[in-house]
Design a protein around this nucleic acid. Structure first.
Lengths: 196, 196
DNA sequence: AACATAAGTTCATCATGATGAACAAAGAGA
DNA sequence: TCTCTTTGTTCATCATGATGAACTTATGTT
């Protein structure tokens, strides 16, 4: 935790990310449609994502330019090798994060899925793989899993900052003293927390 | 894991998020500058974030409209109560995620910080608090922490999918068979994984 | 062949968040 | 006071990702 949070070498990484949230979902929609129906057309993608045909058409033509999407012999949309790998990386991240939030942290399903969906395209391969490794360790042993579930079942909003926090460093606590301000209380009631 | 990944009730949550990545960093910059120098001006924020003064001016005026930023008696920028809470929520999320990635998962510091910075404004309050709770459990006991560190030290890229994965469900494995495709091998070498 | 429907593209428009240039206003020094 | 610098705002411009309307191009059907 050396560099400051606003260090420009980090904070601009967000916009330099390999794939946008939107692009990831176009790729995954094509993948899902081919799995389910055997083919994917611009209109099918638009329908699945509930965007206009125009938006789907323009986004998909960008994905073609980036080499992630082509057409098969019947002119149906097809992911390239790179496109499929990218789609599967994001899908894996979604499953990993969703499962971790829901089954390890005990987050409510709605919030777990919403959080996972927002973060899916931003988690690096390394972090995702290590998270799987940790979950395998935690969940592969029955008594260990049960213990974690017991611990997480004891969680109540605010309780994580009730006692002296062993995670504090340099005077900054992971759970800031403002954790129970009016603003947080308001947002806490809404599923999704940060979401409106 | 009931709803499909492309369900529009979820996939559009990303753009409906309470705060954008950029807005979060403007708030945190104002907070940090006031902590460090006692005041924050548009120019200082622009300098810290390495954006143009024009960009900072326009973004900050949006934050004023949203009620997150005002000016103090000396016309210096000031976070409102809501603005400070929002900034601290994002900062907490950054510290929580960064610490989790680095100290629990054993992710390399660069990747851990980059991932945490990208995801900081997207993790809900509930998920963040529960993650703190889990980390307190894991790290508060020496032998438990040591065991986790041992387990994570054994991690090698790809090893998480080497044996039968106990996390599989509905035929879909968290670690897809394509986890070791050419595409992933290429990206694995770059710090940040998904990043370019 | 003619017409209707479906599929796909393009265009004007909007919002966000950036740039750099032009401009206005406030302070500091000779 | 006059001038120069700093500070802050506004503007034209760009890129992305969306909308809806208009348009073109199949693909059927009678």
């Amino acid at each position: 935790m050396s560099k400051p949070i606003n260090d420009s070498t980090y904070w601009r990484d967000f916009e330099r990310n390999d794939i946008t949230h939107s692009a990831a979902h176009y790729l995954m929609a094509i993948d899902a449609l081919r799995d389910e129906y055997g083919y994917a057309r611009v209109t099918d993608v638009a329908e699945m994502l509930e965007v206009s045909r125009g938006a789907a058409s323009m986004s998909i033509s960008q994905l073609k330019k980036r080499g992630w999407v082509t057409e098969d012999a019947h002119r149906f949309l097809l992911l390239t090798e790179d496109g499929r790998c990218m789609a599967q990386l994001v899908e894996q991240n979604f499953r990993i994060l969703g499962k971790f939030f829901e089954e390890v942290l005990g987050v409510s399903p709605d919030t777990a899925l919403s959080d996972a969906c927002k973060m899916e395209h931003l988690m690096s391969l390394e972090t995702g793989r290590r998270l799987v490794w940790l979950m395998r360790y935690i969940l592969s042993d029955e008594s260990r899993a049960a213990k974690i579930h017991d611990v997480m079942a004891c969680f109540r909003p605010g309780c994580e900052s009730a006692e002296h926090c062993p995670l504090c460093e340099g005077g900054q606590c992971l759970t800031a003293p403002e954790g129970d301000c009016e603003f947080h209380r308001r947002h806490q009631r809404k599923p999704g927390g940060v979401n409106s």
